[in-house]
């Protein structure tokens, strides 16, 4: 449950992280207002995204206060094995020590969420939670566009898409390191 809470909160804030990813890379980690409930936190983050341009409740200038280091949990260190696994899952290369540091910084940034008191607050899944999920009638309205879809594919055979056999295993770590060295300029 606690894990879920943290996760939910993390999702809400992930918007913020996305928004400030450039800052993150530049090692300009911003703090978020502490001791506020996730819901008010969420509204702060989401309001600017809404179409209401001139909402009086939205401050014109962002405010934050610094969260002291001692209030945060211990910094996460990323072992090389985990990086390897993440690279495999995400099909993304971290490439360098710099990339690793960037990841650790991103985690450090998210660590501030641990300071937020979420006790007694039911986690949310979606910002549209108070709306009923629209349910569609079971009548055929789409499909029958194989030709159009197949046009998008690089390779087709008759009316099939063509893919390589099975999943191509990713190169082993050493091989990948070699490839990467080669690709760097």
């Amino acid at each position: 449950m606690i894990k879920m809470l943290a996760f939910q909160t993390l999702r809400v804030v992930s918007l913020e992280i996305l928004g400030s990813s450039c800052n993150l890379l530049a090692n300009n980690v911003r703090s978020i207002t502490k001791r506020c409930s996730p819901r008010s936190l969420q509204s702060q983050i989401l309001r600017p995204l809404s179409s209401h341009q001139h909402n009086l409740k939205v401050p014109k200038v962002p405010t934050w206060e610094h969260v002291p280091e001692e209030e945060l949990p211990r910094p996460t260190k990323i072992p090389a094995d985990l990086v390897d696994r993440l690279e495999r899952l995400a099909l993304v290369d971290f490439r360098t020590q710099q990339g690793l540091e960037c990841l650790e910084k991103a985690i450090r940034f998210a660590d501030q969420l641990h300071v937020v008191d979420t006790s007694g607050v039911e986690p949310m899944d979606s910002v549209l939670e108070d709306r009923a999920l629209y349910l569609r009638d079971d009548t055929v309205t789409e499909g029958d566009c194989a030709e159009e879809l197949l046009k998008l594919a690089k390779n087709t055979v008759e009316e099939y898409f063509v893919a390589p056999p099975g999943n191509i295993p990713l190169p082993k770590r050493e091989e990948r390191a070699a490839i990467l060295r080669h690709s760097e300029f």
């Binding site: 055929v140 789409e142 499909g143 566009c145 194989a146 879809l149 009316e159």
Partner: peptide, 17 residues
Amino acid sequence: SGSSVQFLAPPNSSVSF
């Protein structure tokens, strides 16, 4: 999606975007 469910339809004919 609103594409049809049918067994043994021509390949990729019951596929929506």
